[in-house]
C-alpha cells in the first residue's frame, strides 16, 4: 500500500496530466455531439456583451461601407417599388400567391462577433430568444446568405456560418433551375464555396448566378454568388462548381434573421414521410 502511494506521488505529474486531459477531451466530444449546447460559448452574457462592446467600437471603422451598402439596398428596393407602381394592370394579370404573403419576417441584428479564419467559423448576433430568435433560423444579409442559428440565449444567438464544414444550403442555378447543395468544402478561402451534386448533363457557364432554392430555411431567389470555376467533378454523374460568394464575410455588420412563419407546418407534414417509410 505504501509503495502504491509512493508510486502515485512520484509520478503525480503524469496522473494529473491524464486526469485534466481526459476532462478536456470529454468536453470536446460532448460538445461535438450536442452541437454546443454547453453554456461556455460566446452566447453567454459575459462574453457576449464583451464582444458587443468591442464591436460597437469596431463598427465605426466600417461606417462608410455600411452606409454605402444600405444606400444601395434602398435604391434597389425603390426600383422594385417603382415596378409595382408603374405596372400596367390592363395587359398583365397579377397573380399573388396569398400563402407566400407575409410568410417570411426579418429580424434585424448586429454582428457582435465574427470569425473567418478558423476551420469551423461561427458568428454571435445581438438578438436572442427575447426578440423571437429560435434555433435553426436562417441568417442573411442584403446581398447573400450567412448561415444558420445554432444556439440562442435571452439576448444573444450564435450562428453557424456558411464557412463551416457542417453547413449545407440548397441552391439553384439561374437559367436551368437545377438543384445543388452549397458547402464551403475543403476550402481555406472565405470568398469562395462549392456547389455539389449538380447533374452532369447540365452546362454551367462561368459567371452564371446561383440563388437559394426556397427548399431550406431561406426564401426563394436570394443571390448567393456567381460561378467561378466549372471543371471540378466529384463523381460519375455529378458535377461540382466553385462559386464566388456574394456575401463578404470579413466585414459583416448588419444581418437579417429569417423567420419562416410556415416552417412548423412544413416540418410537421414532412415528418409524416418518415413515419410511413
Amino acid at each position: 500500500m505504501k509503495n502504491l502511494w509512493l508510486f502515485f506521488v512520484r509520478y503525480n505529474a503524469f496522473f494529473w496530466f491524464v486526469l485534466f486531459f481526459v476532462i478536456s477531451i470529454l468536453l470536446v466530444v460532448r460538445n461535438n455531439n450536442y452541437q454546443k449546447s454547453s453554456f461556455i460559448n460566446s452566447s453567454n452574457v459575459v462574453v457576449g456583451s464583451f464582444y458587443e462592446k468591442l464591436n460597437s467600437w469596431k463598427s465605426y471603422l466600417a461606417l462608410t461601407e455600411t452606409n454605402e451598402s444600405l444606400a444601395q439596398e434602398n435604391a434597389s428596393l425603390r426600383q422594385e417599388l417603382q415596378n409595382y407602381i408603374a405596372k400596367d394592370t390592363i395587359d398583365s394579370v397579377q397573380l399573388v400567391d396569398s400563402i407566400e404573403q407575409g410568410r417570411y419576417e426579418f429580424i434585424i441584428a448586429d454582428v457582435a462577433n465574427n470569425s473567418v479564419n478558423q476551420k469551423s467559423n461561427f458568428l454571435t448576433l445581438n438578438k436572442g430568444s427575447k426578440d423571437g430568435v429560435v434555433k435553426g433560423m436562417g441568417v442573411m444579409t442584403s446581398n447573400g446568405v450567412v448561415g444558420t442559428v445554432l444556439n440562442v440565449s435571452a439576448n444573444f444567438s450564435t450562428v453557424q456560418s456558411l464557412l463551416n464544414p457542417n453547413t449545407k444550403i440548397s441552391v439553384t442555378l439561374d437559367s436551368t433551375g437545377e438543384l445543388g447543395s452549397l458547402v464551403w468544402g475543403n476550402n481555406i478561402d472565405p470568398r469562395y464555396a462549392i456547389v455539389r451534386d449538380i447533374p452532369n448533363h447540365v452546362v454551367v457557364k462561368k459567371g452564371q448566378k446561383v440563388f437559394t432554392s426556397g427548399f431550406s430555411i431561406y426564401p426563394k431567389g436570394i443571390n448567393v454568388g456567381a460561378v467561378e470555376e466549372t471543371g471540378i467533378t466529384s463523381g460519375e454523374s455529378f458535377l461540382d462548381v466553385r462559386i464566388k460568394l456574394s456575401t463578404n464575410f470579413s466585414n459583416l455588420h448588419h444581418v437579417y434573421i429569417v423567420k419562416d412563419n410556415l416552417a412548423g407546418e412544413k416540418q410537421a407534414l414532412e415528418a409524416l414521410n418518415d413515419d410511413n417509410g
Partner: peptide
C-alpha cells in the same frame, strides 16, 4: 469561451503544463 471551441484549448494547455 472566446473561440467557441470548448475543450480544445484546455486540452492543449494541459499538455503544455
Amino acid at each position: 469561451a472566446f473561440y467557441d471551441s470548448i475543450g480544445v484549448h484546455a486540452a492543449a494547455c494541459v499538455a503544455l503544463a
